[in-house]
């Protein structure tokens, strides 16, 4: 049994008041997610990721097609006991504190007493909400709300969790913590289905991804198999590099492009043929300090442009039918 499966899931919205025109938000999505895997649901903004998640939570109803979670149709109250959901830019009740919000939700699952309190304490610790858990949520920042949102999605120790843009609004430290949390969930056997428009989030977490653009599935499979996302080169940032040394590197073809960032401080682009570790060693020997090394990749947008020729714009039904 798959954790999540959809079959030709389609959603039209009607836009325009006087002459409603259908707008295709999601077009025949068929997808299956295995139990226990971390699945990345990728795509640029407006690709239909949130629409899909809302369909899976039955916040909206599909125009056609079918969706199942844990082998049951979506919307089944029994299934809802076994899943968790973090909405995009989550927002909860202003008048409740973080603790009270979790108590409210825990109560919906029938948890009570000591057990409930312990679970709430643990979850808030896990997402990094400190003593501010006793403050009303109206005082919370976006990042803090995001953490509360993650905590509430885990209140019932779910078998499948749906995270809509879990990293948004978080600082780098927060992103790392959430990454760790997702991996921990995976180790517990929980299926994690998350959406993101940032490729690196997926790279560090998932085994499999699906890529959505213009409401349609454009690629799905193992991340390593999707050659499209391979590294195209490297970018290193160094301090203490003299101009003459830089010229030499350029004429040797080691550096294709250099951007001065400050006195003797440069960001250098290396072609894929250069091994960054070797260059780093030699530069360090010359007394140059290495600040960072990053792989340069194709972005999702580059990927889409290559995949479908042009970036999808018109999503009126007529265009799609043609």
């Amino acid at each position: 049994m798959d954790a999540i499966s959809t079959e030709s899931l389609t959603k039209h919205y009607h836009v325009g008041f006087w002459r409603p025109r259908p707008y295709l938000a999601l077009d025949g999505l068929s997808l299956s997610v295995r139990q226990g895997e971390v699945f990345g649901f990728l795509g640029p903004n407006g690709a239909g990721k949130t629409t899909t998640l809302k369909l899976l939570m039955q916040l909206i109803y599909p125009t056609s097609g079918r969706a199942e979670i844990l082998g049951k149709p979506v919307g089944d109250v029994g299934v809802k006991r076994r899943i968790g959901y973090l909405p995009e830019n989550p927002y909860f009740y202003d008048h409740l504190t973080a603790e009270e919000l979790l108590e409210y939700f825990a109560g919906l699952f029938g948890y009570s007493g000591q057990d409930r309190r312990r679970r709430i304490e643990m979850l808030l610790d896990e997402v990094g909400i400190g003593p501010e858990r006793r403050l009303q949520l109206r005082k919370f920042s976006k990042g803090m709300l995001q953490r509360v949102g993650i905590a509430q999605s885990l209140i019932n120790d779910p078998e499948v969790v749906f995270f809509d843009e879990p990293m948004s609004g978080l600082d780098p430290l927060g992103r790392r913590e959430i990454r760790h949390l997702i991996l921990k969930l995976r180790d517990r056997g929980c299926t994690v289905f998350f959406s993101s428009h940032v490729l690196s989030d997926a790279e560090t977490l998932c085994s499999r991804v699906a890529v959505l653009a213009g409401g349609r599935l454009v690629a799905a499979g193992d991340l390593s198999e999707l050659l499209a996302f391979q590294v195209r080169g490297w970018e290193i940032v160094v301090v203490g590099l003299t101009d003459s040394d830089l010229e030499k590197l350029k004429t040797d073809g080691v550096v294709t492009h250099a951007i001065p960032l400050g006195p003797q401080r440069f960001a250098l682009d290396l072609p894929l043929t250069v091994e960054p570790a070797r260059l780093a060693t030699s530069l360090t020997a010359q007394g140059v300090q290495l600040v960072s090394i990053n792989p340069v990749r194709e972005t999702l947008e580059d990927f889409f442009v290559r995949q479908i020729g042009t970036a999808p714009k018109d999503r009126g039904l007529g265009t799609v039918a043609r």
Binding site: K54, M57, Q58, L59, V77, K80, I83, L108, F109
Partner: peptide
């Protein structure tokens, strides 16, 4: 309007 219903309706509630 405030979308707090998203979180709520994903819980076991009709």
């Amino acid at each position: 309007e405030r979308r707090s219903i998203y979180g709520l309706l994903s819980k076991p509630i009709r």
